[in-house]
Structures are given as C-alpha cells and as structure tokens.
C-alpha cells in the first residue's frame, strides 16, 4: 500500500466517520482513480451537499465547495458553466441527491452537463441519526420507521438513466477495485455521469436492523450483488432482493450541455453580425 496517495490527495486524517462506514472506501476509490488518471489536479473541483458522505470534501486537497443540503449539483452546474475546463465532481448521499436535491439531480441528467456525481448510498440519513431515506428498502427499521419502512424506494440508476444521464453505473464497497475503475470511467466520461455506490452504515442502519457488525454487513453483499451480465440470465424471482451492479449506460452519442451552449453562443453572434 502506498501511503503517499493519502498525503498527496488528502489534507487530514482520520475522518469523522464511524468504524465500518463505507464512505472511507468510496473516498479511497475516488483518490485511487484520480491517481491513475492524467488529470491537471488544479482543474479538479469537488462539490458536496450536507450529510456524512458530503463531509468527504473536508478531507480533500483540491478546490472544494461544501454547500447546503441537496444543493451541490446546482452549485456545481454554475461552476462548470462558468469554466467548462474544470472537472467538477459532486460527492453526495442518497438523501442529499435523491430527496432534498432530487430536482437538481434529474435536471442535471436532462441537460447532460459534464459533471460526475458520486452518491454514497447507505440507505439512510446517517448524519441526522438514521432515519429512512428515498433508497431505504421496504421493511427496514429506521429511527422514523420503527414498525418497518413502508415507502417504495428509488433505484437511483433507473432514475438517472430515464432522466437522461449518459453514464450510469452502480459500484459497491464490497468490490473496491471495481469501484475505482467505474469511478475512473465516470470521471473520464464527457456528459453527466452518475455512480451509485452501494455502501453500509453499520452504526445506524446496521444496528437498528440487527445486522450484527460491519464485517457481517459487508459479507451480506456477497450474495446480494449480481453483475449486469449475471442478471440477464436470472428470472425476476431470482432477482428478488439482489442488487445489480456495473455500467448500465455509457453513451457518447448524447451531446454534452457545455457544447450545446457553445452553439447557442455561435447563433447569438450570428444574429448580431448577420
């Protein structure tokens, strides 16, 4: 293991996250993916909202913006449009991007603006103490669903795909190397890329649902995770309770928003010259 990677990309350790939290694995996958790419580090900006996951920017040695709950994508859109040269990466949580920030998420996908959105999806509101979120599986015990949660959850990959994102993938903390590779593809992709990182919150979701400890929660993923390829051969009964991971969309045909806007500028200039 090279420790240099930490001093190069992080400003401080340890993090504020609980033992066994998946956020550290995602953060590590992000900096490892960046380390393998040939990016100008001065041109990379991280933007986040509010939540345990969004706290990740407080450790990063980059231009960073830790914004309001749900609003990271809106701020990021302004940054990208002000300077399309910048690589803008949004770090967010399932509550942050799919609940309070859900409107910004779908509109960023619709525009296909060149942002990379990495959602640390721990199936609950971690920072406020473990209430149910828009991705909490039905029946889960959370601090606001002590009789079992009853709201149907979003599949964030289906959501972003239908909203128009041109790169959509799911990765899992259970497969950190593959997560790193997927994040790398997402950052390299031109257009809106969304990565749903299936993760764990052992301190809250795990404890409330009696899933023993972080190690046990991690081992549960082994049976739940199936690749897109495996899923193709499985029946809907077999897919019950499974989580499909891999790259669902990787489409370079959709025009990216900054490019679309550049055409608008050309038209405007023609209109005054012509």
């Amino acid at each position: 293991m090279n420790n240099d990677i930490y001093s190069k990309y992080l400003v401080k350790l340890p993090t504020m996250w609980c033992p066994g939290c998946g956020n550290g694995i995602v953060l590590q996958a992000i900096i490892r993916s960046i380390d393998e790419m040939d990016l100008d580090l001065d041109k990379v900006v991280f933007v986040s909202g509010i939540g345990c996951s969004s706290r990740a920017v407080n450790y990063l040695n980059f231009d960073c913006m830790h914004t309001n709950h749900g609003r990271a994508i809106a701020f990021a859109t302004g940054i990208k449009m002000a300077n399309p040269e910048l690589k803008v990466i949004v770090l967010t949580g399932d509550g942050d991007c799919a609940s309070i920030g859900g409107n910004h998420l779908i509109h960023a996908c619709r525009r296909n603006i060149d942002l990379t959105i990495i959602c640390m999806n721990n199936s609950n509101y971690g920072m406020t103490g473990g209430q149910y979120s828009p991705t909490t599986p039905i029946g889960s015990i959370t601090k606001t669903s002590i009789y079992g949660s009853y709201e149907p959850p979003f599949d964030l990959c289906d959501l972003t795909k239908s909203a128009g994102a041109s790169f959509v993938a799911r990765a899992a903390t259970y497969y950190p190397v593959q997560m790193k590779n997927i994040i790398k593809n997402a950052i390299n992709h031109k257009g809106l890329s969304f990565v749903d990182c299936a993760s764990d919150c052992p301190s809250l979701y795990g404890r409330l649902n009696r899933l023993s400890d972080a190690a046990n929660m991690m081992s549960l993923w082994k049976d739940r995770l199936v690749t897109i390829k495996q899923a193709e051969t499985m029946s809907s009964e077999q897919l019950q309770g499974k989580v499909i991971w891999g790259e669902f969309v990787n489409n370079n045909d959709r025009e990216e928003y900054c490019d679309i806007y550049a055409r608008n500028i050309s038209k405007a200039k023609e209109s005054i010259n012509g």
């Binding site: 302004g78 940054i79 449009m81 002000a82």
Partner: peptide, 23 residues
C-alpha cells in the same frame, strides 16, 4: 452565460458556483 435553472434555489446556487469560478 444565461442559465434557466429548475428553480430559484438552483438559480442562486448556480450563480454562487459561477462567482467562485471567477465570474
């Protein structure tokens, strides 16, 4: 740049981001 955002929360968010990027 003129951007028609999805709401006013996004509008002020976008201008703050753009200002931090130098505009």
């Amino acid at each position: 740049v003129y951007m028609q955002m999805e709401d006013e929360i996004a509008s002020i968010g976008a201008i703050i981001g753009a200002s931090a990027a130098g505009k």
